[in-house]
Design a binder for these strands. Structure first.
Lengths: 190, 190
DNA sequence: AATATTTATTAAACCAGTTTAATAAGAATC
DNA sequence: GATTCTTATTAAACTGGTTTAATAAATATT
């Protein structure tokens, strides 16, 4: 769990004792391609850390998947919206590849935060990080064209395009497969 | 500062001693209509709580204002993006009405969190609340039509339409004034 | 009250996406 | 290697917005 430890310490100073206390609650889990970590209607009880693999986070709107995010190596993830509010999820977490994760239950997270002010701070700061990412996301949705968002994704997460079918990337960008195909054609003609 | 106190306690249990400790750092400030609490290029050093009034939070993209949010009574606000990252702001906070706020500096916030685990928890939970709101925002940008978003806003914050000029609301919805006018016409014809 | 300024609507031409449907290309399975 | 299934592209008609410009309505100023 070295990479989990390192990721936590990239957010906040945590003593060895507190770190050990916290890490004891994490368990390793393995999902096969196609497995669901979560399905719509279920309560989400766990937080995840992606060791290796890829999980898509999506809802289904009027019959078609709307991909919110692709979680890859080093991501902390869950259905944070349902997790925070303790409401049944309206989303899916599906392994797009065989994936290895470390996972901790929400009740254990609470124990960890109660026990350690340092780890509660980690919790606050990782929420802040999530805020920053979501803020950028909103800005990009508002201020960039679809073509620009496609180009940014290509630049920022180039490996995604090898790992994930294009129609899911189209969905992630808020497009239809046809729309993305048009953008790609337009770009290739220059 | 009763309403500030009440709002804090709506997030987390806070003892009278800790609450008193925290509130001592807040100062009352008054802004006149048209005043800037923040301008692009400046560092934002404070967190605000809106007692009475209205402040718009916007960037300028290619010469035109892009309104991110209208902060009204009971809102905690700042340019959270620049605040968290301690980078120069790219945004403006402008009073659309004479406004009374309570404000605390970031360094004092840090003091408060260091001193009180309960208030650090308030900090984490208010970040969570912000996450939930941003998440809904992203979902609405992705999944709703402009018309639907207009109708939701009308339903959720009806008083805004009396307080704020329509072209700013158009901007908030990610539209041009012409676009919003068309939507309103289309709706009125039914 | 008259005038100037700001804000909102309308019209016309345009554009980047959509939907539907057909086709082509690629990957998996027998 | 042929067949089937999945994924990507293309075409055509359509749609909900955009831009620009003119006009109308509301608000502020003298």
């Amino acid at each position: 769990m070295e990479d989990l430890k390192k990721t936590i310490r990239s957010y906040a100073q945590v003593s060895d004792a507190d770190m050990e206390f916290g890490l004891r609650f994490y368990k390793k889990e393995i999902f096969k391609k196609g497995d669901y970590l979560l399905q719509s209607g279920q309560y989400i009880r766990n937080f995840y850390f992606m060791k290796t693999g890829c999980v898509s986070y999506y809802t289904i709107e009027e019959g078609t998947a709307q991909v919110m995010e692709f979680f890859t190596e080093g991501y902390f993830f869950t259905d944070l919206y349902a997790y925070i509010q303790e409401i049944p999820s309206e989303s899916y977490l599906e392994a797009l590849e065989d994936s290895v994760v470390y996972t901790i239950s929400k009740t254990d997270v609470q124990k960890v935060f109660d026990h350690s002010h340092q780890l509660e701070r980690f919790g606050r700061l990782s929420m802040q990080r999530t805020f920053v990412i979501n803020f950028q996301r909103i800005n990009q949705l508002r201020n960039l064209s679809n073509q620009e968002r496609y180009l940014r994704l290509l630049e920022k997460r180039p490996t995604l395009f090898q790992r994930v079918p294009q129609y899911l990337i189209a969905s992630y960008l808020g497009l239809t497969p046809v729309g993305l195909s048009k953008i790609r054609k337009r770009l290739s003609q220059k």
